[in-house]
């Protein structure tokens, strides 16, 4: 370090701030921004296994990858599956989060910390490991779930083997795994509701349910919309659950866009096609993000 002059602020050639952010920015530019831009180029080429050995084998093909993908029935099925997962799974997860948050936040409840830790535990677990656990819970003959449902008279369901049930099964598992995260956000939100509001409503003779309906829900609504959209955006990137639990089946009923992209890119090494799929996914995510910007209140986001 150079000798500092005590009073006057030094005016070095490069502001010290840049030195502090340089490592992070360099990494972000090289390993994220650069690749994103390169992905645009990649999606306009026929980059494949041969190009992997020698990049000169790749040619510019314009929009061919996009038009080919858009004519592929599997793409549309993957898009439908992904939207199914996000549009059903997102709100379901958030509803479970809200329920858990209300429970943990209830004034009469003791052991709040323990309850919160229990609800949050599934979120920190390793997705691959618990997806395998759920594979066995869903076993049509020996699985715990069908056995429990059998007690209330439900006939055994072939959860992961029936194309109609496979996606609901993955949604259920994802809800279990993820609700704890938003629960924490809701607990913080609930604690921000001024107690006087509840007390005033109680004085006016409101029942607990009415207070929930007319005080809690309106106060929490901004957070709720925000959380639903953020959860759905995360869910649009579905990959590990179908990879481990169903390999995208049965009959492609659980093939998500990212799984489709993975197969095209890293199994068949059609990187150009895969990049086009990645951008189409990005487009969907952008639509959801715009929606979020639209409805999110001033404070959030």
């Amino acid at each position: 370090m150079t000798a500092p002059s005590a009073r006057a602020p030094r005016t070095p050639w490069i502001a010290p701030g840049w030195w502090f952010v340089a490592p992070a920015l360099t990494l972000i530019v090289v390993f994220f921004v650069g690749p994103v831009l390169a992905a645009i180029v990649l999606s306009f080429t026929d980059f494949d296994l041969y190009a992997l050995a020698d990049p000169r084998a790749a040619h510019w093909v314009g929009l061919r990858n996009y038009s080919r993908v858009l004519q592929e029935p599997l793409f549309w099925q993957a898009l439908r599956n992904t939207l199914y997962f996000a549009l059903v799974g997102g709100p379901l997860t958030v509803a479970a989060s809200l329920g858990a948050a209300l429970l943990v936040n209830a004034r009469a409840l003791r052991w709040k910390g323990t309850a919160r830790a229990i609800f949050f535990a599934p979120f920190v677990t390793t997705l691959v490991a618990v997806a395998i656990v759920w594979r066995y819970l869903y076993h049509p003959r020996y699985g715990l779930l069908n056995w429990m449902l059998g007690h209330v008279g439900v006939q055994p369901i072939d959860w992961l083997g029936d194309p109609r049930w496979a996606m609901p099964a993955i949604i259920l598992m994802a809800t279990w795994k993820n609700f704890g995260y938003n629960m924490l956000i809701f607990i913080a939100g609930l604690q921000n509701i001024p107690r006087e509001l509840h007390e005033a409503a109680a004085l006016d003779g409101a029942t607990p349910f009415q207070r929930f309906r007319h005080v809690t829900i309106p106060m929490l609504a901004p957070t709720m919309f925000f959380v639903v959209i953020v959860t759905m955006i995360g869910y649009l990137q579905l990959f590990t659950e179908p990879y481990v639990m169903t390999q995208g089946g049965p009959l492609r009923a659980t093939t998500s866009l990212v799984l489709y992209m993975y197969e095209e890119g890293f199994r068949w090494w059609r990187l150009g096609v895969a990049a086009a799929i990645a951008f189409l996914l990005f487009l969907v995510i952008v639509l959801f993000t715009l929606l979020q910007r639209r409805i999110s209140p001033r404070g959030a986001a």
Binding site: I28, V30, F31, F32, V33, G34, P35, V36, A38, A39, L42, L236, Q237, F239, V258, M261, G265, F266, L271, A274, A275, A278, F279, L281, F282, I285, V286, T289
Partner: peptide, 19 residues
């Protein structure tokens, strides 16, 4: 950078692999 948060990591993955 904040805007970059909206880009899903999967978009970068293919060229990142080549890099």
């Amino acid at each position: 950078m904040a805007a970059g948060l909206a880009i899903p990591v999967q978009v970068a993955m293919l060229p990142l692999f080549l890099l």
